[in-house]
Every structure is written in C-alpha cells, then in structure tokens.
Design a protein around this nucleic acid. Structure first.
Lengths: 122, 122
DNA sequence: TTGACACATGCCCATATGGGAATACAATCG
DNA sequence: CGATTGTATTCCCATATGGGCATGTGTCAA
C-alpha cells in the first residue's frame, strides 16, 4: 500500500501547507477561486485541485454565483484533529515530566560513558 | 514536486493513523519497540519505520536500555498543530453561521430550479 | 455566434510513501 | 566463541501526490 490519499480525512488533507492557507483565507469569508489564486500566488489549476481535495473531505463547500464559484469554509471536519491533539496539551506544558526525562538521560549518559566513550545517536 | 515528505513536520508525520496510535501508546509512558509491535499488530520493521519518522520530527525520543530501545513521547512538536486548529474552534461551534449558510443555499437552489431542473453536484 | 472570462480536468513526471520480506547490527546468554 | 533476542535498514512495488501545461466546460457580453 502507498501513502493514504489526501482525501482520506482531514488529517491528510490538512497536511499540505497550501490547503491550510486556503482554509485560513476562507476563514475570513466566502471567496471566489481567483481571489485565492491571487492570495496564494499559485497557478489556478493547482488551487482548483487543492479545493477539490478540501471539498472531498468536507472542509469547504461551494456555491455557484454567475461564472464564479464561491468557496466557503466548513470547519467541522477539523474537530477530530482538535480532539486528538488537545489530549496532548498537558504533555507539552508539563515541565515536571521534562525534569524526569532529564534526570533519566543523565543517568543513561553516565552509564554509557562508563562502558565506552560517547555514542551520540542521531 | 511530489507530496511533502512525512518527515517534513508534525502535520505530515501525524497524518498517518498508525503513527498517531504509536503516540497514543507512548502517552502512557516509555515503551520498547516490541511492546508497540504487539499493541499495534503490525510487523516489527514497519513499526521501526514509523518510529523513525516520528523521531525525525522530534515527536519521540529514544533511550537505549540493554538490547531494547525505549521510546518516549515528546509532544512539543504537536503544538503548531494545536495552535492552528484551535483557531477554528469557534467556527464549528458557531451554529449561527450554519443558519446563514442554509438560507443562502435555499436561495441558490430556488435560482437553479428556475433555470433548469436539478443540477445535483457531487 | 464569437469571444472573453472563471473554473475544472486531464495528462506527464519526479518523488516518496507504506507494507512485505529478507537481512544487517547490537547486545546478551550459554 | 556461537546462538538468540530486539531493532534497524535495505530492496521491491503499487500507488498517489503536486506542480506544469494544455484543454474542456459553463457563463456572460457584444
């Protein structure tokens, strides 16, 4: 199997920076494609393609207006992402854990130094 | 250009469900690879590969313990994701917007019905 | 009708994925 | 030492990406 399609879910769709930018722009309100093209400095076809992906995961919705197509944001599919990351909020703000980790690392380094001289992973 | 590497940033790394699972498991504490292999029901090499990606974006850290390698979570790189999605929190909880959208859609459908009979996009 | 404008799609290509399978490496055991 | 256990790396492959570019489609104007 290859990598999951970008249209699989919001996680995949939003992994692409340009698509995040598009959503950010749409957060300001409904916009026609050309507006986005101008704002993104991307070629029109690519923008349309990104919009397609976003549409397929439900992150944007379209509305016809004359010869324009007005895209609007629908943030709902972002919820799973939010819910998932939010659970980690404590983890990165927890400096206590950090302390434990530092202590363990020191202990580990000592042990390595006893055996050999410097391992330097990564 | 092809799709951005999974190791580009946390957004890309975390787009893969298995990697999210791994992080979820590590949230419970440090674990050796085989533990994860068992928990995930995946082959060991694939787990190691996923761990590599996570390591490269800084989401996990390793520590040698005898012949095992203990992986631990480092949630910090998740922050950008959190910060980005959080901005949309209001968007999906805002039912007012919904109302506007529904109204506009109705208006639009009427207009379409006048012109032709049913377009049914998507 | 023709033409211009706003978008969407199709095609080509380099790239990297994630899984499977085999193998390399490291540390410990006997 | 050789054997075994715990992980990492390599190779193979089907798949889909995202950008560039050309073209199709729909709408409005003259």
């Amino acid at each position: 199997m290859a990598r999951a399609a970008t249209t699989t879910d919001a996680f995949n769709a939003v992994a692409e920076p340009r698509r995040r930018q598009i959503l950010d722009l749409l957060a300001g309100g409904e916009r026609p494609v050309n507006d986005l093209v101008a704002a993104l400095g991307l070629a029109q076809p690519q923008v349309s393609k990104h919009l397609r992906v976003l549409r397929e995961v439900g992150l944007v919705e379209v509305r016809d207006d004359g010869r324009q197509r007005l895209y609007r944001l629908n943030a709902t599919p972002l919820r799973p992402i939010y819910d998932w990351v939010r659970a980690y909020e404590r983890a990165w703000s927890a400096r206590f854990d950090r302390l434990d980790m530092v202590l363990e690392e020191l202990k580990q380094e000592e042990r390595n130094d006893e055996r050999d001289g410097e391992t330097d992973d990564r």
